[in-house]
Each structure stands twice: as structure tokens, then as C-alpha cells.
Nucleic acid binder design. Sequence first.
DNA 1: TAAGATTATATCGTGCACGATGCAAATGTA
DNA 2: TACATTTGCATCGTGCACGATATAATCTTA
Lengths: 154, 154
Amino acid sequence: MPNPEELLFLRNQLCFPLYAASRMTTKIYTPHLQELDLTYPQYLVMLVLWEKDERSVNEISKELHLETNTLTPLLKRLEAKGIIHRERSQSDERSVKIRLAQKGKDLHKPALEIPGKIWSSFQGSEIDAQDLKDFQQSLFKLVDSLEGQLNSMK
Amino acid sequence: MPNPEELLFLRNQLCFPLYAASRMTTKIYTPHLQELDLTYPQYLVMLVLWEKDERSVNEISKELHLETNTLTPLLKRLEAKGIIHRERSQSDERSVKIRLAQKGKDLHKPALEIPGKIWSSFQGSEIDAQDLKDFQQSLFKLVDSLEGQLNSMK
DNA sequence: TAAGATTATATCGTGCACGATGCAAATGTA
DNA sequence: TACATTTGCATCGTGCACGATATAATCTTA
């Protein structure tokens, strides 16, 4: 534990490098995503749909931990680009089903190239494959823990 | 390495849990920061100023990896709340010096309580102190690596 | 089955975050 | 000293992200 007077120093925070790394990662993805005409959050939605098509807004919200008031306009922009379809469910009129349009399905193939491109940009840095794998495990554990904390807050 | 068809699955991404954890962490901080009338990015700026007062916009930008076009309106809001002062440097008229106002200095004491509050919310989760310490080290290493990649991009 | 609670989505307002651009002060160079 | 370049900050437009709130559909239950 740091000294009391160093408690609030930037280098002793966990939240700050998390925040910075997240923004910096988005920046690294951006040029690759621009070739697909996707923003980073839009890309995450596409990952969810490529994995399993035909989802409700609610399902996507739970999977990505994004509120529906964030997703609704984002999904409308994807619809405007002709990448997805949005239609009210017949069985439950409250629910809106999201479906990949052909253009959205076509984006899957070029998207498969992205992980490799990101990966290669780590070559030459001090971080190796095993580091990243362990780190990813820790991150998913952290997300689970944070989800528990957030659920117990409301 | 995952199968080619699983390459884009959410659980095989590094960027997604980073992104999710960052947003969730902000959410966990928010109620504590509301007591100080600060947003999360405003809190980061305050951390920087509490550590060392009297900084130019440029210095804060470098420290937090935030662009000046993000900081300028944020700093104006902090100024409007009477938490900081903004004034052009006499020696270099292009530079704007940021200085803590008394109200900003007064916020340091209650802010010292925040790390403990965040810490205690991790009690009961599967993550222990050493895990978090190691994880923090990895995060700072990642930030360094990402900074290198971003610098070599422009 | 009608009233009340819950659920799924949407709207609105605020605050980032960033690229593109502008501008004035400072610096470099012939 | 003239002039181009760089630097530090600011403005503008777009797209999240979220809390508060609204609305309509569905479910519960007296």
C-alpha cells in the first residue's frame, strides 16, 4: 500500500491505466475499422451479431454491458448504413429484433483480418503472447467482479 | 490461438473486456465522485493537479493521454465550478496555466477517502490484493506499449 | 378482467473523446 | 529582418455513454 499522501498519485491508481488503455486501444483499432466504415462500439455490436444473428436489443445490451439508450441510436446508424435490419418482434411487440443485412454478413470476411493486424502491432513491444493471454484472463475476471458490484449497487 | 471461425468471438478479444472494464469502473466511481461534484475525467485532472499544482494544458494532456480539444472544455467547466483557475502564461502567451483554486485544494481531503471505498467494494470478490497489484503492473506496461504504437502511427 | 407493476425500447440532456480545422504566438532559417 | 514552420490552445461536428424520463406492450393479481 502506498503512503497516505501518495494514495491519489496517478501511478497508484488502477482506474487510470484501465481508462487510458481502453481509449488508446480504440485509437489503434480505428484506422482498420474505418476501412469497414464502422466505429469501435459498432464493431463490438457486429462481433455479437456475427457470433449469433437475430438478437433483441436487450440481448445485445446484456452481452456488451451497454445500456439500451446507448444502443438504440447506434443501431439506427448501422441500419441507415444498410448493415443491419431492425424490426419489432411479432411475438412480443415491445421487443426489437436485430438481424444482419447482406452487407453486414459481407463485412465478416474482411473483419477476420483485423485481429492479425492488431496482433502484429504488438510485435517488438515487451509484451509477448503469454502475457497477453494471462492479462486477458485477468480482465475477464475483473469484468465479472465489476458486474457483481454494479448489480449489488442498484 | 482460437479457431479461425472463433477469432472474432467476444470471449477471444482483448479490446472488449478492456473497454467494458473501463466503463464499469467509471460507473463504480461515479457515486463517490458525485459527492465532490466531479465527473470521472475531471477527477483524473484533479489527481494530476493534487500531485503537482500549476501545470499547462499541454502537461496535463501528456500525463493523461487526453487531447487538448478534450481538456479545454473540461477545464472550463472546472473553472466555472470555482475549482481551478485558468490564466495565460506571461512568459509564453500561447500557454495556459492551470492552478488549483482554494475549493480545488479543499477537495483533496475528502478525495483521500475514495480509494478505500473502491477497495472495499472488491472485498468478497474472487480478486485479492496481489492479483490487483500484478494486474496494475500489466496495465501500465500495456499503456506504455500502446503509447509506443500510437507514436509510431503518426 | 381491470388496476397496478414490470419490461423493452426510445427520447432528451450533459459530458466526454477525437479528428479536422483555425489562429496567434513563438521559433527556425535564409 | 522576412517568411515559413511549429507549437499551444481553442472551436466545431460526430458519436458514444449514461441518468432521468417517457411510452407502449405485457404480465400479475386481486
